[in-house]
Amino acid sequence: MNLSEATHAPAAPGIGAELRAAAVYVLTGAFALLLQTTVFHTLTGGKVIPDLVLILCVYLGLREHNVGGAAGAFLLGYLLDSFSGSLVGLHAFAMTSVYVVVYLVSRRLWMDNVPAGVAMVFLGTFLKGLAIVAALAAYLSVERLSIGMAQTLLAEALLAAALTPVVFGVVDWEMRVAGGDVR
């Protein structure tokens, strides 16, 4: 290979690219958590908080069909556990469940477009709620599930779905900047 070929050859996806992608996900996850714990509370008064970490998990389920994607969803959930509630593992369980469902759906259906991502985030919010309630019911006593919870969940799902194109766009942009592969 001469110098010209070496200069213009596309970067082969390897450990470097995967590390860059991981760094993008970690930084985006931390930033999302920062927004969820501070800014969104200021904006919404804490009534409804869009779960940006969940959107990131859906992104992983749609784009990262490898062990790293599953591990990323678990770690994002674990990170969320550190800043939410008192039971460690609850969000890790919920986020991994969301990842698995999105992964299985995206293997069978063509999901490489924004509306599909929006739909998956909308459904993923309910799935996360279901996983949390199921885990809580298994480990703690859950009382008086009511229509109020469903309304909160619906509002959270709608808000998260509305923010999905923005989050997906930001992650895609970050991937391009980091020299990663935007699928």
């Binding site: 969820q36 501070t38 509370h41 804490g46 409804v48 908080i49 970490v53 939410s84 509630g85």
Partner: peptide, 9 residues
């Protein structure tokens, strides 16, 4: 300095 990351907790 910050509040819960989720509405559930």
């Amino acid at each position: 300095t910050a509040r819960d990351a989720s509405v559930w907790f």
